[in-house]
Amino acid sequence: MTIIEALGVLPATLRRTLTWDRGSEMAKHAEVTAALGTLVYFCDPASPWQRASNENANGLLRQYFRKGADLSTVEQAEVSFAADEINRRPRAVLNWDSAAARFASLTVAALQTKGVSGGTGKMARLPTTGDNSIGLSTATVTKELPHRLPIPAMDKPH
């Protein structure tokens, strides 16, 4: 799985948890936990405040890709460009750091503290321009995870 490969190169301290929407894209969440030890939490349905980072990212992505667009036709270069632009923007919530700069500093700090490979046998690499940062939110843990996750409704504009 691509997410396992992407997270697997990070230091373990930067991939302890992952908070996700209740979409079908995380149907194999148990594989992520088994491979990386990353606990996957799901937001409650109809609770956008639990995924504020996700909602904000959706709004930023709409500046590059319109709502309802067929993303299967989008070239990787376009996705990389949008991710790079978004991750390099200064953000008030990060004391006017960019997400890329903050992520890089956290990665360096984690590597200096642990000095480990990230638990996958691969050496962790520092994030570079175009790498996506990981947003954390304060979602609640679902008591029982369904065997089959529902497909979420289209995002509502802010």
Rank of each mutant, 00 (worst) to 15 (best):
L126H: 04
E144I: 11
S105I: 02
V40N: 04
A139D: 01
R66P: 05
V141E: 10
R89W: 04
K143S: 06
A109C: 06
Y64G: 05
S80F: 03
A100F: 07
A82R: 06
G130H: 02
P152G: 11
Q63N: 09
V74Y: 04
L106V: 01
Q112K: 14
A101C: 09
T113W: 01
L18P: 04
E78A: 15
R22N: 14
G23Y: 06
K67M: 06
D21M: 10
F81T: 15
T120P: 01
T129K: 06
I134Q: 08
G118S: 10
Q76K: 12
N95K: 12
M154Q: 14
T140H: 04
S47L: 03
W49T: 14
N87Q: 08
E144S: 08
G118K: 05
M26A: 13
N132D: 00
T129Y: 00
P90A: 09
L106G: 04
D21F: 10
W49A: 12
E75F: 03
P152S: 12
I86Q: 06
A104R: 10
R22W: 10
L71E: 03
I151W: 01
H147R: 13
G37Q: 04
E55C: 10
V116S: 08
R125V: 02
F81M: 15
G135S: 11
V108R: 13
N58G: 03
V40A: 10
E55S: 12
A27S: 14
S80E: 09
P45I: 08
L60R: 08
K67Q: 11
S72L: 10
T19H: 07
D70R: 08
L111G: 04
K28H: 14
T73Y: 01
T19C: 08
S53I: 00
A83H: 01
G135Y: 00
V40G: 09
A77G: 09
S72C: 11
G37P: 05
G121D: 05
V74I: 15
E25P: 01
L39M: 02
G23W: 05
P127E: 03
A77F: 00
T73W: 01
L71T: 08
L61P: 02
K122Y: 05
T120Y: 00
S24T: 15
G135D: 03
K122R: 15
L145H: 09
N54C: 14
F103P: 01
R22K: 11
G68A: 10
N54W: 02
V108I: 14
T128Y: 03
S24Y: 08
S105E: 11
D44I: 10
T138I: 03
R102L: 08
H29C: 06
H147S: 11
L106R: 12
L136T: 14
P90D: 07
N56L: 08
S137C: 15
T33V: 04
T113Q: 13
T129P: 00
R125Y: 00
A52L: 07
R62W: 14
E85H: 15
L36Y: 03
G135V: 00
M154W: 00
A35P: 02
I86T: 05
R51I: 15
T38L: 02
C43L: 07
W20K: 11
S53P: 05
R102T: 07
D44Y: 15
D70G: 08
D155F: 13
G23L: 08
A92K: 15
P127T: 05
A92Y: 09
R66Y: 09
K122V: 03
V32D: 04
